[in-house]
Design a protein around this nucleic acid. Structure first.
Lengths: 344, 344
DNA sequence: AGGGATTTTGGGAGCGGTTCCAAAACAGCT
DNA sequence: AGCTGTTTTGGAACCGCTCCCAAAATCCCT
């Protein structure tokens, strides 16, 4: 039987100390306008002096929602998510919300678990970077009774606030960059086909190829899972592929996979970018370091988190009416893992 | 006025549907033994069929603690913390706790804020990687009325469960490695002198020098803040220092700083390890990649998180009596940023 | 000063559970 | 059947706060 973590002051003590009723204290606490200024100041003084802090749990029960928000992400160990998380938290912190971290590990079971958790704890809101397929996601989303902001994902038939980056454009930029360097055998290691973000990146890739009249065999696109390990497997595949047919340039759907590829290739003596060019996606903080210098597509992760939380806050506080939408523009960062196609 | 996030089922509905009293439902919910097996099964069936989930907030109020724990860390963007966080969360998840993330940003104000938050929300427990000086930390810790596990830090005069890595040994290993390569001008870029972890690392460094009879000027140790930027500044300093007196090997108190140093040096054409050897500390996942291949000291971050949360869980559930303590042993990982001292 | 409108305050009923206590049901005995 | 002793159950108080409603206080006029 867990010990009860005792508290000392309740609103009742404050009321007594201030010589008013609990209701009045509650009013100053919640900023209700109908309190005589003198009374308000007096109560505030007592609160201050006694270092009273209301129980968020009791408030949560009475108000029907806890001052917390959930952040549903794949895996916090991926810096991509970590930066977003930090952006979310900074705003949440200012606004007085705590952030509950929900690592789904890209696992649907676990994601379901957290969706339930959000209900049970009556969280005030939820920022979602889900992995569920659209089909499955919709009913779940509808069953959630709190404000939701979708981040880097969207569901066409479900209108929520949403923060996006133009993934089509980002990968178009990356691919065009490779094309302009003279490459025409370009491989794409994609993300999961279930996520709109990944699908859009693949789309941008294909569109660029088309625009520049480059033929594409189906084998040029492989599906991945955004892990470094998957990148390593791709690297292995590349090493073993027919050297006259394998891509001379590779566009990976995220930096982690690009790094995995580089790891394998570099340790087998493949020269980058001389033997093969590589572009990633995300611009993780460490990929810009001199020894790596990955060419990649930058997304404003931190700001995405900030924006998502700002949207959510407004929604929770019902300061807005219409759906909020923000689309960031990605930016190509050319560094040293891409170079001109060498004559064959 | 935020909208109330409506719920549907309460314990009362279940009681009615099952034809028993709320108390009985509550008993089956909490696993109280005094329920007739037939009744229990019957109630469970109703709960199952109606998909009832008790409100964690109401439970929290009644029990005096919420089924959540806090994780107080510096900055989730640092993979070091992210891996720990993931270890913590995985265990918490199994045990039915949610994890609230508290990024202090190494800022005392913000740390205080979160300490208060823990109280207000009546969290069940707290895992602390604080930045506060011992002096300041003790009263704060004492004022917290919930179980605490200290992670990678300790306060001598305050007995809590603790999970540590032997930092003295780790940096001893790193330093000895450099000495054995023939270096005798070795620089140390330390962490904040306020944290026991950093102080211990400095201690191991000094001890190794002493053991091998190497003289040390005070300038060999510089205080840092564990950021990549600080590493860059150190790199800058090294570039500008008198080339006959500057260190031929550098031991950084964490990988991030080591990477910052490498970033600057590598982009100025300094050859690593030919011109200077560098050792980091942490073995972040990306530092092992071929282009970087940082020699470093490995700590089992994920397992540290797992252990901390396991300790905390036991403590919350009062399954243990005595203080729990676990000290992991670090491991030197020799890669390619360290090499023999070249004749001068 | 008196009367209606408005502001300020206190009382009390929730919010959805847990838990203590006493009553009810059920044993096992003689 | 009648009497203890143990399970099993329901009732009610409570956890700490919010918020509705009505009473009290204050204000502005005539």
């Amino acid at each position: 039987m867990p010990m009860r973590n005792q508290r000392d002051l309740t609103i009742y003590e404050i009321a007594k100390a201030a010589g008013v009723s609990r209701s009045t204290v509650s009013r100053v606490l919640t900023g209700h306008p109908n309190v005589k200024p003198a009374t308000r100041m007096m109560v505030e003084k007592v609160i201050e002096e006694l270092h009273y802090r209301p129980s968020s749990v009791a408030q949560g029960l009475a108000r029907g929602q806890l001052n917390m928000i959930g952040l549903l992400i794949g895996d916090i160990r991926n810096t991509f998510y970590a930066e977003i998380a930090r952006g979310v938290e900074d705003i949440a912190h200012e606004a007085g919300y705590m952030v509950v971290i929900c690592d789904t590990d890209y696992d649907i079971k676990r994601e379901q678990f957290y969706f339930h958790g959000v209900q049970q704890f009556a969280l005030s809101g939820l920022i979602v970077m889900s992995v569920l397929d659209q089909q499955e996601l919709i009913p779940v989303l509808q069953s959630i009774r709190c404000p939701i902001v979708m981040l880097n994902r969207y569901v066409r038939s479900f209108d929520t606030d949403v923060v996006l980056v133009d993934n089509v454009e980002g990968s178009y930029l990356a691919t065009r960059h490779l094309i302009e360097l003279g490459h025409h055998r370009i491989g794409h290691l994609a993300g999961s086909a279930l996520s709109t973000a990944s699908r859009d990146r693949t789309l941008g890739f294909q569109r660029a190829l088309e625009d520049y009249g480059i033929e594409r065999e189906d084998s040029d696109i492989q599906e991945g899972d955004l892990t470094i390990e998957r990148g390593r497997r791709y690297g292995q595949w590349w090493l073993e592929a027919d050297s006259r047919r394998r891509p001379t340039a590779i566009f990976a759907a995220n930096d982690l996979m690009a790094l995995g590829i580089i790891d394998v290739l570099a340790s087998h003596g493949v020269k980058i970018p001389d033997d093969v060019s590589i572009v990633g996606y995300d611009d993780l903080p460490l990929t810009g370091l001199a020894p790596i210098s990955l060419t990649t597509v930058r997304q404003p992760h931190y700001d995405m988190g900030v924006t998502a939380m700002t949207f959510l806050k407004q929604r929770i506080e019902q300061k807005v009416e219409n759906v909020q939408r923000k689309i960031f523009r990605p930016e190509l960062v050319v560094r040293k893992t891409t170079g001109p196609q060498r004559n064959e």
